[in-house]
Design a protein around this nucleic acid. Structure first.
Length: 895
RNA sequence: GGACUCGUAGCUCAGUUGGCUAGAGCGCCUCAUUGACGUUGAGGAGGUCACAGGUUCGAAUCCUGUCGAGUCCACCA
C-alpha cells in the first residue's frame, strides 16, 4: 500500500458503489478467461468453467436465480483468485413452451385470434417478447454481481445454438437414435402439443367413479365420455366370473347406437378393483392403448386435439368439450337406466406443467429419442465417480430416474421453438434435405432439446472451437434440485448420444464432474415462490434496500446444499449490518498511519499473545474456506498449474454456508470485538504500535480476500477505494497462510483472558458497579505471566483503573467469581448485599460439585478408561482438575 | 404403491467420520454511550435435541419403531 488511502464515509451505501465496481471489473476484463489476452497462459493455467443455467426469457429473475448466481459466482471467484483460468458463461433460454403460453395468454387478452395472426407473425412476436426479457434478465444478472464473461453470452435461439441444434438432430437421426411414429403420448389440449412424461404433473384430486351397465357387464369408469371410443371390454385372465365371455363379442348400447365389442383377457386388469371388468378405449388411455396393442384392437379418435369430441363420437356429442360431453353422457346413462351408482374417489390426474390443463392421453405421430442404449453409460458415469452429486443423496434420485426412463418425445406442436429440421412426404417418408414432394416439418423441438446441448453448444460445438477444447467438460453444474429430471439427466444423455468427447482426455466424459443442487427458496410459511400466489420476493427490491452483497451472503449462508431455505428478510438486514461492520473495521484500520502488511519482518518473539492468537484464528478461518472449496477434480486435468494442494484433512465439499458463517464469526466476534479493541491499547504503546498496525492491515487484507467470493462488491470497494490497491481484488491471488508466527497456545491464552474480562464485566453488572466507573480488580492465579502481559488490555476492556495479580486472595470486602482456574475479585467497599452474595456463592458451589461428580464418575468407570481414546480421557482429567480447583476456591470463600 | 428430506431456544437455522456445560443470527429482558461502526457495544434469560426402545464407556449424531411436516416418482379404470 503505497498511495494515500481515501477516506470512507461512516456507513456503507451499496448503491453508491455497486454499478461502478461492476463497470470497473468489466473494463479491466476481470471476467474474461485470462488466456484470452495472453495465449501463454493457456499452457500455464488450468481451466475452470461453469456454464450458467440459462434463466427462462419469460419474465424477470426471482430469488431462486439469485441463490444460483450467488453460489456459482462464489465458486468462480474463488477459483479465479486461486489461479485458475476461469470462465463463467452466461446465457438465457427461449423456453419454448413457457414463452408460448405467455404469448397465448397475451393474445387472448388482446382478443387477437392466433390462427388469424398466422405463424410467422406469432413467432416474431414471441421472439420479441423473449428478447425484451432477455435484456432485462442480463441486467439483473449483472446487478447480482455475476463475474460472467458477456463476450460469450449465449441464447438457446441465437445462430450458434441454432446450428448446434440442427446438427445434433441430424447426427442423431443418422445414427438411428431419433425415430418418428404413432404412439400413445401426453397431450395438452390447451397448449395443443404433446408433452414429455416429466412435463406432466400428477396430482391427487377427487373424482367420480361411475358404475354402469355395459352389455352383460357392469363396470366402472371415471371417464364415461370415452365410452363412444371403446372397442373392447377387458377382464383378468384368471377371473372366473367373466371367463365365459372371453373371446366372444358383445353388443353395447351407446349414445350413438349399438356397438359390437370384443371381450379380451389381459393381465393389466386388476380383478379386485371396481367390478373387475374394464372398458377399453385404445385411442385415449395409456393402459388401454397397450391392451389394444396386445389384442390388436381398433383405436377410435373420439376426442380431438382441442379436447372437443369428434364426429366419430356421434351427433349427440360431437363439438362438445370433453368435460361437457362427460356430463351429457352421465345424463344419458341415467335416462337409459344404465347408471348403477356413483362413487366419489380420490385419484391422481395428470396435468400440463405449464397450463395446468388435464392431460388427454392420445395416439399421435411424434418424434422420439431412443434412450435404451444411453442409459448404461449414464449410470456408469456415477459408478465410476466421474459424475458426483452434491448432496450425495441425489445420486440415487438420478439413478432411479435413469433406470425408469422411456424414450424421450422430442417434438412439440407449439409454434415457437426450434423447427424440426426434417422434411416429410405424403407417405410419411423423411428426408433431412429439401426434396421435391417433401415439405418441412411443422413441429418444433422440445425446449429441453436445446438445453441438453448447453454445456457444449455454448462453447462452440459442433465446430472444434478453442473454447470447446479448453473448457469442455465444464467443472460444476449448479442448479436447483427441481430440474434434475428435466435438465441434468438430459445433458448427460445428449453428451453420450452425440459422443461429445472430452478434448483433453480424448474420451467420453460427463459434461461436468460435479452437479451441485441448491434448495428452493420458500416463503415464511414454507410455500414455494410463485407468481400465482404472489409471494415472490423481487431480488432487485432487496438489493435496493440492503445491497447485493447482503442478499448474496444471506442466500449462501441461509441453508445447506439440497435443503430448502425459508426466506426471511430479517436475515438480509443482518447481512447488511455485517457489511457495515466490515466497512467500519476498514475505516478504523485505514485511519491508522503508515499501514503496512509485510509479515515477513515480524518474528514471533516480538508479537503479543493477542497478535499471535488472531493470526492463528485467521489461519483457521482460511483453512475452513479451503476445506469447503477444495475439489480434487478441479485439479485433475492435464495442465500443470495451479498445483493441487494437499487435500484438507476433513473436506466439507461445497458447503459454502459453512465458509461464510466461519468468516462472519471470525470477522465480527474475534477480530472486531476483541482484537481491534486490544489493538487500540497496543497502538498507544510505542513497543507494540508498529507491529499492531502491520497485523491489523494484514488481517484486513486477508479477510477481504477470503470474503470476496461471498461479498464481491464491498470487498472490492474497500480494496480499491479504501486501500488504493493498484490491482483489483477480484484478480489478486488467494492467500496462502502459514503457521510460522501463530501458535495454538496463544489462541488458548486469548480465550482465558477473554474469560477473565467477561467475568469482570459480569461481576460489575451483577453488583451494580456504575458502568462508567474505573474500578480495581484482583486476579488470583498460580500462573500470572500471561495475565501480567495482558494487563493493559484487560484494564481497558474491563474498564479497570488497576489490576492486581496475586497468588492468594487478600482479605477484605470482595465479590468474586471463577473464570476457569482464575479467581476474579472486585473490592466492593461494603456495597454488596451479603445475603444475595451468599445465595450466588452457594449456587456456584452446587454447580461445581455437580461438575466434579459427573466428571469423576466418568473417569472412575473402568470401561471408559479402557475404551475411550487417550486424548478424550486426558481432556476429561484436565476438566476434573479445574472443576476441583474451582470448588475448593468457592468453598474457601464461603468459609 | 415406491423413494427421499426434515422435526434442536419464541422465530430462522448450524451442529460431517459418536467425545467440552448443545451453538449462531434475529427476537426478548437489563444496561451503556463524545470518535471504526446505533446498520453499535456490554451483560442476561431461554433447549427433556419430536417420542419410545436398542447399540455403545459415551448418542442431538448410529440402528429399529411410532407420531408429525414436506417433496419427488408411479399407466391402476
Amino acid at each position: 500500500m503505497s498511495k494515500v488511502p481515501k477516506e470512507l464515509p461512516k456507513t456503507y451505501d451499496p448503491g453508491a458503489y455497486e454499478d461502478g465496481v461492476y463497470a470497473a471489473w468489466e473494463k479491466q476484463k476481470v471476467f474474461q478467461p485470462r488466456s484470452d489476452n495472453d495465449a501463454k497462459l493457456r499452457k500455464k493455467l488450468k481451466p475452470y468453467s461453469i456454464v450458467m443455467p440459462p434463466p427462462n426469457a419469460t419474465g424477470i429473475l426471482h430469488t431462486g436465480h439469485a441463490i444460483m448466481i450467488a453460489l456459482e459466482d462464489a465458486l468462480i471467484r474463488y477459483h479465479r483468485m486461486k489461479g485458475f483460468d476461469t470462465l463463467y458463461l452466461p446465457g438465457t433460454d427461449h423456453a419454448a413452451i413457457a414463452t408460448a403460453s405467455v404469448v397465448d395468454r397475451q393474445l387472448l387478452e388482446e382478443k387477437i385470434d392466433k390462427q388469424q395472426l398466422g405463424r410467422p407473425a406469432y413467432v416474431k412476436r414471441a421472439k420479441e417478447f423473449a428478447q425484451a426479457n432477455k435484456l432485462q434478465i442480463e441486467n439483473q444478472i449483472k446487478g447480482l454481481g455475476a463475474s460472467a464473461d458477456w463476450n460469450r453470452n449465449a441464447f438457446t435461439m441465437d445462430k450458434e445454438r441454432e446450428q448446434a441444434v440442427v446438427e445434433a438432430f441430424k447426427r442423431l437421426y443418422k445414427k438411428g437414435l431419433i425415430y418418428r411414429g404413432d404412439y400413445m403420448v401426453n397431450w395438452c389440449p390447451v397448449c395443443r402439443t404433446v408433452l414429455a412424461d416429466d412435463e406432466v404433473e400428477h396430482r391427487e384430486q377427487e373424482g367420480v367413479l361411475y358404475y354402469m351397465k355395459y352389455g352383460p357387464f357392469e363396470l366402472a369408469t371415471t371417464r364415461p365420455e370415452t365410452k363412444v371410443g371403446d372397442t373392447a371390454v377387458a377382464v383378468h385372465p384368471d377371473d372366473k366370473r367373466y371367463k365365459q365371455y372371453v373371446g366372444t363379442e358383445i353388443e353395447v348400447e351407446m349414445i350413438n347406437g349399438l356397438h359390437t365389442l370384443k371381450v379380451v383377457a389381459d393381465e393389466a386388469v386388476d380383478p379386485e378393483f371396481g367390478t373387475g371388468a374394464v372398458k377399453v378405449t385404445p385411442f385415449h388411455d395409456k393402459t388401454d392403448y397397450q391392451i389394444g396393442q396386445r389384442h390388436n384392437l381398433d383405436a377410435i379418435e373420439v376426442i380431438g386435439e382441442d379436447g372437443v369430441m369428434t364426429e366419430k363420437a356421434g351427433k349427440e356429442l360431437a363439438g362438445l368439450d370433453r368435460f361437457k360431453a362427460r356430463k351429457k353422457m352421465v345424463d344419458w346413462l341415467k335416462k337409459k337406466n344404465l347408471l348403477v351408482k356413483e362413487e366419489v374417489m380420490k385419484h391422481s390426474v395428470g396435468r400440463c406443467y405449464r397450463s395446468d390443463t388435464v392431460i388427454e392421453p392420445r395416439i399421435s405421430r411424434q418424434w422420439f429419442l431412443n434412450v435404451t442404449d444411453l442409459k448404461k453409460q449414464a449410470l456408469k458415469f456415477v459408478d465410476d465417480d466421474e459424475l458426483k452429486f452434491i448432496p450425495k443423496r441425489y445420486e440415487k434420485t438420478y439413478r432411479d430416474w435413469i433406470g425408469k426412463l422411456h424414450d424421450w418425445c422430442i417434438s412439440r406442436q407449439i409454434w415457437f421453438g426450434h423447427p424440426i429440421p426434417a422434411y416429410i412426404n405424403k407417405d410419411g417418408k423423411i428426408s433431412l434435405t429439401k426434396k421435391a414432394g417433401y415439405t418441412a416439418s411443422t413441429d418444433t423441438l422440445d425446449t429441453w432439446f436445446s438445453s441438453a446441448l448447453w454445456p457444449f453448444s455454448t462453447l462452440g460445438w459442433p465446430k472444434s472451437s478453442k473454447d470447446f477444447e479448453r473448457f469442455f467438460p465444464n467443472d460444476v453444474l449448479e442448479t436447483g434440485y427441481d430440474i434434475i429430471f428435466f435438465w441434468i439427466t438430459r445433458m448427460v444423455l445428449m453428451t453420450i448420444a452425440l459422443d461429445v468427447k472430452s478434448p483433453k482426455q480424448k474420451k467420453l466424459k460427463p459434461p461436468f464432474h460435479t452437479s451441485y443442487l441448491h434448495g428452493l427458496v420458500r416463503d415464511q410459511r414454507g410455500r414455494k415462490f410463485s407468481k400465482s400466489l404472489g409471494n415472490g420476493i423481487d431480488p432487485l427490491e432487496l438489493i435496493g434496500k440492503y445491497g447485493t452483497d447482503a442478499l448474496r451472503f444471506t442466500l449462501v449462508t441461509g441453508g445447506t446444499p439440497g435443503n430448502d431455505i425459508k426466506f426471511d428478510e430479517k436475515r438480509v438486514v443482518g447481512s447488511r449490518n455485517f457489511a457495515n461492520k466490515i466497512w467500519n473495521i476498514a475505516r478504523f484500520i485505514i485511519a491508522q498511519e503508515e499501514p503496512e502488511t509485510d509479515l515477513g519482518k515480524l518474528t514471533a518473539e516480538t508479537l503479543t499473545t493477542f497478535d499471535r492468537a488472531i493470526l492463528h484464528k485467521l489461519r483457521e478461518t482460511w483453512l475452513e474456506c479451503e476445506r469447503v472449496f477444495y475439489d480434487a477434480d478441479d485439479y485433475a486435468k492435464s495442465e500443470p498449474e495451479p498445483k493441487a494442494p494437499n487435500a484438507p484433512s476433513h473436506p466439507r465439499p461445497y458447503d459454502m454456508a459453512h465458509a461464510g458463517n466461519t468468516l462472519y464469526s471470525f470477522i465480527w466476534s474475534d477480530f472486531a470485538d476483541w482484537y481491534v479493541e486490544v489493538a487500540k491499547v497496543q497502538l498507544k504503546d510505542p513497543d507494540t504500535h508498529h507491529n499492531t498496525n502491520i497485523i491489523l492491515s494484514y488481517v484486513l487484507e486477508t479477510i477481504l480476500k477470503l470474503l470476496h467470493p461471498f461479498m464481491p462488491f464491498i470487498t472490492e470497494t474497500i480494496w480499491t477505494d479504501g486501500l488504493n490497491q493498484p490491482e483489483m481484488l477480484a484478480l489478486t491471488e488467494w492467500p496462502e497462510l502459514h503457521e510460522d508466527l501463530d501458535q495454538p497456545e496463544d489462541a488458548e491464552r486469548f480465550e482465558h483472558i477473554k474469560g477473565v474480562v467477561e467475568t469482570i464485566r459480569r461481576l460489575r453488572k451483577d453488583h451494580h458497579v456504575p458502568p462508567g466507573a474505573w474500578v480495581q480488580a484482583i486476579l488470583v492465579t498460580d500462573e500470572p505471566g500471561p495475565l501480567i502481559d495482558a494487563s493493559d488490555a484487560i484494564n481497558r476492556l474491563a474498564r479497570l483503573k488497576m489490576l492486581r495479580i496475586v497468588d492468594q486472595m487478600p482479605k477484605g470486602e470482595l465479590v468474586s467469581a471463577m473464570s476457569g482456574t482464575i479467581n476474579v475479585a472486585l473490592p466492593t467497599g461494603g456495597l454488596v448485599d451479603e445475603a444475595a452474595e451468599e445465595v450466588r456463592l452457594q449456587g456456584q458451589i452446587e454447580a461445581a460439585k455437580m461438575d466434579v461428580e459427573r466428571l469423576s464418575k466418568r473417569l472412575d468407570s473402568k470401561d471408559y478408561a479402557e475404551k475411550a481414546p487417550e486424548h478424550v480421557v486426558a481432556e476429561t482429567k484436565a476438566k476434573l482438575k479445574e472443576a476441583e480447583a474451582r470448588l475448593e476456591e468457592l468453598q474457601r470463600q464461603a468459609g
